[in-house]
C-alpha cells in the first residue's frame, strides 16, 4: 500500500474504539435490548466485534455462536475458542451440516444436479443467519453484524446471510483498519496473522477468490469512495486498468446488497422513498 494512503487510513485507535463501544452500548440499549448475539468464525472481523461487544456490554451480555460446517477448518474453531477464553465467554456451538445437507439433498434431487460451491456457501451463510436470529428470539439479544467496509463496498458477502444484522459496528472500517484495531484491542496473534477466509469450502481464501489482495482493494477503494477520485483519474496513477475495472464493477453491481428491496411507488407516500424516519425514531 502507498505510504501516503496508509497514513490516511491509520486511525487513532483509542478514539475509534471509544466511539465503537459507545455505539454498541447506545444502539443496543436504545433498541430496548441489553444483550447481543453474534457469530464467531475464528476470523478477524468477528473477533474484533466480540471484543467491542464485551467492552460495551460486559461479557455476561455477549452470546457468541460458533456454527461450523463439516468442512470448516479446525483451526477456525480453535481460534474462535481462543477469543472465548481470552474474553471469558461461554460460546454456543451449533453445527450447521445437518440442515445444510438436508437442504441440498432436496434441491439437488429436484434440479438433478449438484449445487455449486457458491450456492452451497450462500446457503451456509444464510443458515448461520437463521441460527443467530433464532437465538436472538430465545435470548432476547440483538444480532451484531461483522461485515467490514471493504466487504460491503465489494459486495463480498451473502445477501440475507452474513450481511444481515441489526447493527454493525465495523461497517465503516476498511480491512486494514480492522487489522489495526484488532491488534490494539488484543485479538490473539493467530487470528491477526492468518489469511482471511470465508471458510465456505476447503482451503478457500478471500484474496484468492476475489483475485486481488485486501491491501490493494483498500488502497483503491479509499481513493474511489472517500477521496472521490474517479476511475479514469485513478488509472493515470498507474493502477492496472483491469483490476480497477473489476473493483469498480463489483462495487456497482453489488449496490443491491447494500439496500433494502426496491418498492414500486403507487401512493403519495411510499416506504423507502418518501416515508422518511430514522430507525432510532423515538429513541
Amino acid at each position: 500500500m502507498k505510504q501516503a494512503i496508509e497514513k490516511k487510513l491509520h486511525l487513532n485507535a483509542k478514539l475509534t474504539l471509544d466511539v465503537l463501544t459507545a455505539f454498541v452500548r447506545e444502539e443496543v440499549t436504545k433498541a430496548g435490548f441489553s444483550r447481543i448475539v453474534m457469530g464467531l468464525s475464528g476470523g478477524i472481523d468477528s473477533a474484533l466485534v466480540a471484543y467491542l461487544a464485551v467492552h460495551a456490554l460486559g461479557q455476561e451480555n455477549v452470546q457468541v455462536v460458533m456454527m461450523p460446517y463439516k468442512t470448516s477448518s479446525a483451526n477456525s474453531l480453535k481460534d474462535a475458542e481462543e477469543v472465548c477464553t481470552d474474553l471469558n465467554l461461554k460460546p454456543l456451538v451449533v453445527p450447521i451440516s445437518a440442515p445444510v445437507d438436508a437442504f441440498f439433498q432436496n434441491m439437488d434431487s429436484i434440479f438433478g444436479e449438484p449445487a455449486s460451491n457458491l450456492r452451497r456457501g450462500n446457503r451456509m451463510a444464510r443458515e448461520r443467519m437463521c441460527t443467530l436470529f433464532d437465538i436472538s428470539a430465545i435470548q432476547n439479544a440483538l444480532v451484531l453484524g461483522t461485515s467490514n467496509k471493504t466487504e460491503l463496498l465489494l459486495g463480498y458477502g451473502t445477501q440475507f446471510g452474513d450481511l444481515a444484522s441489526a447493527i454493525n459496528p465495523i461497517g465503516d472500517l476498511y480491512k486494514i483498519q480492522v487489522r489495526q484495531l484488532s491488534k490494539a484491542i488484543g485479538v490473539p496473534n493467530s487470528i491477526l496473522e492468518k489469511a482471511p477466509s470465508a471458510d465456505l469450502w476447503e482451503n478457500q481464501t478471500d484474496e484468492q477468490e476475489l483475485g486481488f489482495d485486501y491491501d490493494t482493494a483498500d488502497e483503491i477503494l479509499y481513493q474511489l469512495v472517500d477521496a472521490r477520485i474517479n476511475p479514469d483519474e485513478l488509472a493515470t496513477f498507474g493502477y492496472d486498468s483491469k483490476l480497477l475495472g473489476l473493483i469498480v464493477r463489483r462495487m456497482r453491481l453489488n449496490q443491491y446488497k447494500r439496500k433494502p428491496p426496491v418498492i414500486a411507488k403507487i401512493s403519495s407516500r411510499t416506504v423507502g422513498i418518501d416515508f422518511r424516519y430514522l430507525r432510532d425514531w423515538g429513541n
Binding site: K7, K8, H10, L11, N12, K14, L15, T16, V19
Partner: peptide
Amino acid sequence: PARSVAEQDRF
C-alpha cells in the same frame, strides 16, 4: 457530527 477519525486524538 463526529466525522473523519484519523491519527489525531480528536475527530
